[in-house]
Write a protein that binds this DNA or RNA. Structure first.
Lengths: 217, 217
DNA sequence: CTGGATCCGGGAAGATACTG
DNA sequence: CAGTATCTTCCCGGATCCAG
């Protein structure tokens, strides 16, 4: 992108990350951790491969990402955020927050990846039972999803891991997921509309917003 | 801009404000308040007038800005942020924060407007003397600047107003201003390099970061 | 003067095919 | 798997012109 050529903190930031796709690449690396080129392509439906390559070069030059080889068994190149890249978390968070209301009016035929949901999940979820033992709920699966853990009042969202044994695995169409986690649709109603909970019901309910009617005293 | 066509909060946000210039227009309206078309042009050096007109149309359609006529004496159209537009303050703040380190390596021949500095000023300034009466420091002038007020521990940055009588008026080249407010250069040294303080010295010093040597016990 | 509209050239983005 | 090459399309930038 051409520089704005302005001596302004924000304009300089946009010179670096204001290009089309750049911040979505940061989204992928923040939600998925280190990725291979093909991982990024899967998480960025619609991007042309040459553009992705261009952006990665620019981001590497700007010190936002680094390339490094995966340990010997496999021979692939991993791409990670640098510390400077991780610092973009605040920008991403505010964009997610601002865009959240737009999720109620979905565009027709839009692509969806379950792991994208890990961003709003960070602030939609809460631990409704801080005194109980920790639970983990998996949204989606190992190939595209995230693990949400509630433990002692804290909620943590991470990429799916084979190391974790989730207490519940949830599958649902995206809009229904939004309705459920915003408290618009209660769990029962969501299940009637196609949401599937495999495992502990209670684990999922612990994460959902209180709609006021059912917290036992 | 073409939609990313992704059912993702952040991608939807970027569909709306990810276009070139859009967030800088928001910056202008946040720092300057309601603006006329020509005010925006002055604050956005480099933008083509047709692009500005295009962006304003798109932003109006998206509910980010509104147009309204100025009261009778003058016949001009004012452009303001809607509540939804004001909500972009968080995104702007995080971009400013992330871009701040880039201010130490200025691009050559970059444009500068004093009122841009009001964004980083919001978190670079602090009230070093909460118990004293309120003071106001003006950066720049009525046509391009901002008023910084310290009052009872709170710091407030606003567009210049004819209603206010600043205790000090500061003029300086942009890089020197950055050095001063980040604590890199002490006031004395800055003055030696071309910074001019018209009025109360102490008012300005009250806003500057403590570099540790001079807070009276 | 303000607030644009119009036209045009160049370059970035997009689509697709191909390769080490 | 990780890109490159090529072609097309369309957005951006710059200049100019115009109506109220």
């Amino acid at each position: 992108m051409r520089s704005y050529n302005q001596y302004c903190s924000m304009a300089r930031a946009l010179d670096v990350v204001g290009d089309r796709w750049t911040l979505l690449i940061v989204r992928e690396l923040l939600t998925q951790g280190p990725c291979r080129f093909s991982d990024l392509r899967r998480g960025l439906p619609g991007i042309a491969s040459n553009l992705l390559a261009d952006r990665l070069r620019e981001m590497e030059a700007a010190g936002v990402v680094v390339r490094h080889d995966e340990p010997p068994p496999i021979a692939a190149t991993l791409i990670s955020l640098t510390a400077r890249g991780e610092d973009l978390g605040g920008v991403v968070r505010e964009l997610v927050r601002w865009g959240a209301p737009l999720m109620f009016t979905p565009a027709d035929g839009a692509e969806f990846r379950m792991h994208w949901f890990s961003l709003p999940a960070r602030y939609l979820c809460q631990d409704g039972a801080p005194d109980e033992p920790a639970v983990t709920v998996r949204l989606g699966d190992l190939y595209d999803g995230c693990d949400i853990t509630a433990d002692g009042g804290r909620v943590d969202v991470q990429p799916c891991s084979t190391e974790r044994r989730p207490d519940a695995v949830v599958t649902a169409p995206p809009q229904l997921l939004v309705a459920l986690f915003t408290g618009t649709t209660p769990l029962r109603a969501a299940q009637a509309e196609g949401l599937v909970v495999d495992g502990s019901h209670a684990a999922l309910e612990r994460l959902l917003p209180n709609t006021g009617k059912g917290t036992d005293r």
